[in-house]
Design a protein around this nucleic acid. Sequence first.
RNA 1: GCCCCUGUAGCUCAGUGGAUAGAGCACUGGUUUCCUAAACCAGGUGCCGCAGGUUCAAUUCUUGCCAGGGGCACCA
Length: 545
Amino acid sequence: MIKTFISESIKEAVKSAYNIELEIEPTITESSEEKFGDYSTQISFQLSKLLRKNPNSIAEYLKDILKSNNYFDRVDVVGGYINFFVNINSYHRAIGKVIEAGENYSKKRYIGNEKILIEFVSSNPTGPMVIVNARAAAIGDSLIRILNWRGFRAFSEFYVNDSGNQVKLLGLSCNAIYKQLNGKNAEIPKNGYHGKYLVDFVKSVSENNPDLENMNDDEIDKFLGEKSVKYFHDLQIESLKNFRVNFDYIIHEKSIREENLPEFIVKRLRENNLLYTKENAIFFKSTAFGDDKDRPIIKSNGEYAYILPDAAYHEDKMRRGFDYLIDIFGPDHHGYKKRLKAIFHAIGYNPDHLEIILHQMVNLTNEGNKIRMSKRKGYIVSLDDLIDDIGKDAARFFFVLRKVNSHLDFDLELAKQKTEENPVYYVQYAHARISSIIRFAEEKGINLAEKPDISTLGKEKELMLIKKIIQFPEILDDVISHREPSILPRYLIELSSKFHSFYNDIRVVTDDKELTRARITLIKTVKSTLKIGLDLIGVDAPEKM
RNA sequence: GCCCCUGUAGCUCAGUGGAUAGAGCACUGGUUUCCUAAACCAGGUGCCGCAGGUUCAAUUCUUGCCAGGGGCACCA
C-alpha cells in the first residue's frame, strides 16, 4: 500500500513538473541497502530520453516536489536514483489497516462477473493418481484459491476421459490379466497396461463377480473396462480430496459424446470450410490458425481422434457460461497446445480466452537413480504413497515451491530423510510459536481486547516485520499476474524468517502491559498472514507443534 | 531435423533492463536461569553456460552456438 502511494506520488510529481502523464507504472523497488532508504525508483532514467535531460537533474527536480509529502522523512537523490525514507507514521498507518482487517487481511470482494474455469489434472482413469498429476493438482488448486481470495470468480474442473481408445485398452489388459489368473494363455496388448495394481484390481473384481465365467470375451472386455474406469476414477478423486484438492465440476467425456457435441464441432468446422478428407480420415485445417500441420479429427477407422471430443468439451465449457478458460497441462501436451487453441479459434471463440499453462515434469529419483514412471508400463509411485511418506503439508508445499516452468527433481529418499528440514515446518513453526506466545500472554492476564497503542512499535525488528507484512497483497497479485503460485510459499518463508529473527531479539510479553499489547497485536498480524497464506496453498497452520 | 523447458555459489534453487547478484542446505564457531532451540547470530564463495547484437545501462531483451531434460502419432 505504501508502494502504491509512492507510485501515485511520482506520477503527480512528474505531471506537475513536466506536464506529462506517465504511461508506464514507475518501477519502485525495495532498496537493497539502508543508505538508499526504504524504496527507490529509477524513473529519472526512463524520463531522461524523453525529456532530453540528464537523469540526475530530473531526479533533483522531482525530489523537491516529492519531499513536501508527509509520508517521507527524507527523499534523497543518488546518481539519478530517487530514494525514499518512509516515516514511521506511514508504517503505523499501514499496519493499522492490517490489524483492522484481521482474518480478512488482503481479501477482496468480487470484482466483476467474469467467470474463470480452470481445468487441471484430468488424468486418465487407468490407474492411481501419480506424482506428475499431483503437481498439477497443487498448482491448480492454489491458483484457484488465490484468485478467489483476490476477488475473481474461479472454478475448478476435472475432465474424465472415460470413452475412447485407452478405456478399450484398459479392458483388454484387464481381460488378459483375468485369463492369466485363471491359468490361461493370454498376453496384455502391446500398448496396454502392465501395472501390478491392475492385477490386484482384477483379482478382487473376479472374486466378487463369479458370472464373469459365463461371459464371452467381448463382454468381459466391456465389463472389466467399465468397472476399472469407475474404480480408478473414484480412487483418484479420493486421493485428491485427501490432498485437499476438490473440484467444483467433474465432466465426463462420455456425456460430451452423448450430447453429440463432437458432431456439432464437425458441423461447425465443415460450415467454415475447414475440413477435408484424406486417406479416409477427416482433417482439420489447423495450419490456418498457426499450427504446424493439419490434424486428423476423425481417423480412417471412423473413430474420433482425441482432439475432437476435447474440442467439444471446450465448446461445452463456453456454453456453460464461462468467459475465460485456463487449462493446466503437463509437459507431454506441449505439442497439443497450438492444436487446441487452433480448434478453439476455429469454432468461433476468441483464442485469447483460452489460456494454456504448461507445467514441467517431475523427475522421481531414488538415491540419485532416476525412476521412469509409466502407467502403461506399470512403474508407479502414487500420490498416496507420497503422502504416506512425507505428509500432505510437505508434499503440497514442495510442489508449489518450485516454479511452474522448472523441472522438478524429487528424490524420494531425500524427501523422507529431510522431512525435518523441509521449509514447510519452518513456516508452520512460526505460526505455532506465535500461537504459543498469545496463549502465554492470556495466561498472564494481558487484556487483548483493549485497543493497543501501535505507535509504541518502533524498534528495528518491529519495523522489519511491518514492512514484510504489508507486502502480502502485492505478493498475491504477483502470483495472479504471473500465474506462478511459487511466489507465495517463498514469501511465507521470508516472513517466517523475519518473525523468528524478531522473536530472538525482542521479548513480546513483559511487565509493560501497553507495550505487550502492541507487540501481541503485531505478531497477531503475522499469524493471520501466515494462516491465510498457508491456507491458500492448502497447508495447515497448526496452533501447536 | 523441428518444437518446448532449463543452464546463476560445492548442492537445491530465487532474482532483476539499472546502484556491491541473493536465500536454503552443507561447513565452522557461538546463543537458552526468560514467551516453543523444529529457532537465532556470525563467518565466503560466483567468467549469472559461451559468443555477437540492441541500450546511457544486459545476468535480465535478442540472435547464434554448446550442454542437460522433454515433446514431435490417424496415442491419449
